[in-house]
Simulated scan of single mutants.
Amino acid sequence: MAALAWLLIPLLAAIGAGVWGTWASRNRRTIGDGAELAGYTRFREAMEKQHTEKQPTEKSPTDV
């Protein structure tokens, strides 16, 4: 009976390796770069708008 227990260890290891190999080689769905590029475009446009808007000038105490 003890010999069967020792034979189960490599058998379970082989099954575990097979499961892990199948999981590791699965096809992963990738969304792509479309969402990231759109977000970067919105960010860039917002930054350009922020710098191109005319900022109100502050009056210094000597301009009064």
Rank of each mutant, 00 (worst) to 15 (best):
W23M: 03
D33S: 08
K59G: 00
G39T: 01
I15Y: 12
W23A: 08
E36K: 06
R28G: 01
W6D: 15
T22K: 00
L12S: 15
F43H: 06
H51E: 09
A24P: 00
A35N: 00
N27T: 02
A14D: 09
R42G: 06
E45I: 06
S60I: 09
E45S: 09
E53A: 00
L12M: 15
T62W: 14
L4R: 15
Y40K: 10
V19H: 12
R44L: 07
A24G: 06
G16T: 02
A17V: 07
G34E: 06
P61Y: 04
E53Q: 03
E45V: 08
L7K: 12
A2S: 14
L4E: 15
L4T: 12
R44P: 02
W23N: 03
E58D: 01
K59Y: 04
P56K: 05
W23Q: 06
T62Y: 11
R28I: 07
A46G: 02
K59P: 05
L37Q: 04
T57Q: 08
V64W: 10
G21F: 11
P10W: 02
A3N: 11
L7Y: 12
A3H: 10
E48Y: 06
P10A: 08
H51Y: 05
W6A: 14
K49L: 08
G34R: 06
I9Q: 07
S25Q: 10
L12Y: 15
I9G: 09
W6V: 15
Y40T: 09
G34C: 00
D63L: 10
H51M: 13
V64R: 08
R26E: 05
G16C: 11
K59W: 01
A5T: 13
D63I: 04
W6R: 12
